[in-house]
């Protein structure tokens, strides 16, 4: 178990860092969709530096490291967002709610559909404002993060291995 922890320490640490960065507004907008792929790349790079082993990396390792980085970032990102929402009773959804309602109102759709979608959203927003928590929001946020971060992490790992192998071949 200790060996396993050591083996995957870099994606876990970088994943934690990326999880924190995904909720910091300015960094989040700078990193955009490249934050998690870059994190996976850094995890691979750190692992090589820590072990002083610059031999050719296998793509499989990139996929595994990317997946672990993405999943760790998703779990920590969701946890931090959950805690902050619980304390402040507000989050991105609450802030963007008026804009979202405006957007939905602009859709040329049936009145009943529009009312239903807005009512569903306002229930979630009201729950967050009152209790700092909405089960539907938390679950969908966790699912979104797990889904996108794991995929983007793996993609970053696949590309990262190819970049690192080029760099190491020069050394």
């Amino acid at each position: 178990m200790e060996n396993l922890n050591k083996k995957y320490i870099s994606p876990l640490v970088v994943g934690l860092g990326a999880g924190v960065l995904t909720i910091v507004p300015v960094i989040k907008s700078l990193g955009c969709c490249l934050l998690i792929p870059v994190a996976a790349f850094i995890a691979l790079m750190l692992e090589q530096k820590a072990n002083n082993d610059f031999s050719k990396l296998a793509i499989k390792k990139g996929v595994i490291f990317g997946l672990i980085t993405g999943l760790t970032a998703a779990i920590f990102g969701t946890t931090f967002d959950f805690i902050i929402t619980l304390i402040t009773h507000t989050n991105d959804l609450v802030v963007s709610f008026p804009q979202m309602v405006e957007t939905i109102n602009s859709f040329p759709i049936k009145e009943a559909t529009r009312d239903e979608v807005i009512s569903l959203l306002s229930d979630v927003v009201e729950s967050i404002k009152s209790y700092g928590f909405s089960p539907l929001y938390t679950l969908s946020f966790l699912f979104n993060n797990l889904f996108t971060n794991s995929i983007f992490g793996m993609l970053g790992g696949i590309i990262g291995v190819q970049i690192l192998n080029t760099r190491n071949a020069k050394k």
Binding site: M100, T103, I104, F107, I109, V117, F141
Partner: peptide, 30 residues
């Protein structure tokens, strides 16, 4: 998805969910 909602009204139910998914990979500044 916004472009297809007028063609298929029921996609409006998916809109908040999709907005959430893409918000995890993009800042979505207006």
């Amino acid at each position: 998805i916004e472009f297809f909602i007028p063609l298929q009204n029921n996609l409006a139910y998916l809109f908040p969910f999709f907005e959430g998914i893409y918000s995890t990979v993009c800042h979505q500044q207006l």
